[in-house]
Each structure stands twice: as C-alpha cells, then as structure tokens.
Amino acid sequence: MSRKPRLPPPDPEPLAPLIDAHTHLAACGGRDPESVAAILDHAQGVGVGAVVTVADDMVDARWAVAAAEWDDRAHAATALHPTHAGDLTDETAEELRAMARHPRVVAVGETGLDYYWLGKSDDCASKQQQHEAFRWHIDLAKEVGKPLMIHNREADRDLLDVLAAEGAPETVIMHCFSGDEAIARECVERGYVLSFSGTVSFTNATELQAAARIVPDDQLLVETDAPFLTPHPYRGHPNQSYCLPYTVRALADLRDTDAQTLAGHLTATAERVYRIALPSV
C-alpha cells in the first residue's frame, strides 16, 4: 500500500522580523518568477522577509542566481556541494567565480565535506575530490570577500583542520550545524557563525540542543534548509521558509529567552553576515 503524501505544516503564528539563512527555492518548486514570488509571499505573511537560496550543483547555482534577480527578497549562495565536488572543472570554476562576484550572491556555498555518502552513493565525489574542491571554494570566498557557507556531514575534525590549514575567510557560516557542544565551542572560539535548522527542535537532538545553548547571539543564525528538515512536530512533512518561526520558537525555549527578542538578534546577525537588509514593505 502506498503511503499518503504528508501535507505541508499549517502556518505558524507570525514572528517578525526573520531571515531564512539557508533554503533551496528551486527544490521547493520555485523555478520561475511567479512560483518564487508565491513562496516568498507565503513566508512574508508570517514574518520571514528575506531568504538566502542555496546551490548544490551548477544547475541549482543558476536557479539560485535567477531567483535572486527575480525577487529582491531572495539572495543567492553559489558553490558545488561536496558530493558534487567532482564537477569542478576549469569551465565550472570560471562560471562559479563569475557567479560569486554577482551582486545578488551573498555567500560562497554550500561547500565543505560530506563523509556520510562515501560508499553509499556511486555519484558521491571521492574524499580527495571533496578536499580539493573545498580548498578551492575557501580561496574563492577570500578572493571575492564574501562569507563561506559550510556543509559538514560526519567530517567535523577534517573539516575544521582544512579550514585552519587553508586559512578561513573572514566569515564562516556553519550551515545546519550538527555537531556537539565541544565542536560548537571550537567554532565559536574561531569566530564562526552557527546556523541551526529544524533539527534542533527534534525530540532526540539532545547533543545538538546543548550546542545551541552556548552560541552567542551575534554568532547565531536560523534556517529551514527547505524542503528538508521540517521542525517538530511536523518532521517529515514538506518544508518551506514560512515554517521558520517554528524553529525560532524552539530555539528561544532552549536558550531561555523570548522568541521576539531572539528574532531581533537573528535578523541583525543575518543582515550583518550577509551584508543585506530586509526589503521595505
């Protein structure tokens, strides 16, 4: 028997201002100006006034830049996801370098290391390819003077060692932070910015929740990573940027603060890190 598709979560109570620090508009269905506007209108209706839409591969990178050109509430981050690191060639490097200089591109990402898929997927780039592409993206972020947005899955130590050896850019964003409190403390000490997704609200995420409690306000971001990682109690349902207030409220509870105060800190950090401002309504 086929499983019925899970419905999108209901709209949360509005919470403003907010910026979704990492989403994937194309994967959410935003592949033309009208569908992008509909996603962003929905988000804006609950207080999420801007998003950073992120690339996994070259096709996604082009979609991300296009979305940021179509709507001033969208900004783009472009790079090759570590599992696609094998796609880095002279030709794609030239295109990525041009994208990174685009005025609507606010970060180089997501890049990093992903050891989870090694040996599980025939399409996953090798460890060597991942390391080479990661170092190239680190240098690109420094070259263009924009934040480096990190993807890290089961590669904590190697990833931090590569950043230290290569010399990290001025701003490093640990997208969808998944480490424990010790890794969080090391990242904080290095001055990195930690971005938390709906996973921090999961009932079994005790180590991640401990990490979320110790991050200073000015090194904290919040994201959906939509269409993935929908927050509790809607885990497994389709995610979009409008769901962000659920995660912010979960974070506020964890950090023993009120959601409105936290929203202000999160937005100020996003505006500073990405060098953006919420569009005037």
Rank of each mutant, 00 (worst) to 15 (best):
G198Y: 02
C187P: 07
I150D: 01
P9Q: 04
T261E: 12
R213S: 02
T111L: 02
P169D: 11
P216C: 04
E13K: 15
Y192P: 09
P17G: 03
Y116C: 11
L140K: 07
D20F: 05
E223M: 11
L88M: 09
E154F: 05
A43H: 05
T111Y: 02
R62I: 00
L18I: 06
S121C: 12
E34T: 12
I150A: 04
G109I: 02
R3D: 14
Q260I: 05
R3Y: 13
E69Y: 03
G145I: 04
D87Q: 15
L15W: 11
E132Q: 14
H42K: 15
H137W: 05
L148Q: 06
G49H: 04
P231T: 04
I183T: 15
A226M: 08
E110F: 03
N152H: 12
W70M: 08
T23I: 13
A125N: 03
S280D: 15
S35N: 07
C28V: 09
D158G: 05
A100G: 13
I150L: 15
C124P: 05
A61M: 02
R275P: 00
K146H: 09
D258Y: 12
F228T: 04
D158P: 08
K146N: 10
L262C: 05
T78F: 04
R6S: 14
R272N: 10
V248Y: 04
R3C: 11
H22R: 06
D180M: 07
K127I: 10
T171N: 11
Y192L: 11
A55G: 13
M58Q: 09
W70A: 11
A268P: 00
M149P: 08
E69D: 14
Q209C: 07
V52W: 04
H84P: 00
D218E: 11
W63D: 13
V188L: 04
D57Q: 09
D56H: 14
D158C: 09
A21F: 01
F177K: 00
R275I: 00
P12Q: 11
V106C: 03
D158R: 08
E132K: 11
D258L: 12
P12R: 12
N152F: 07
A277G: 10
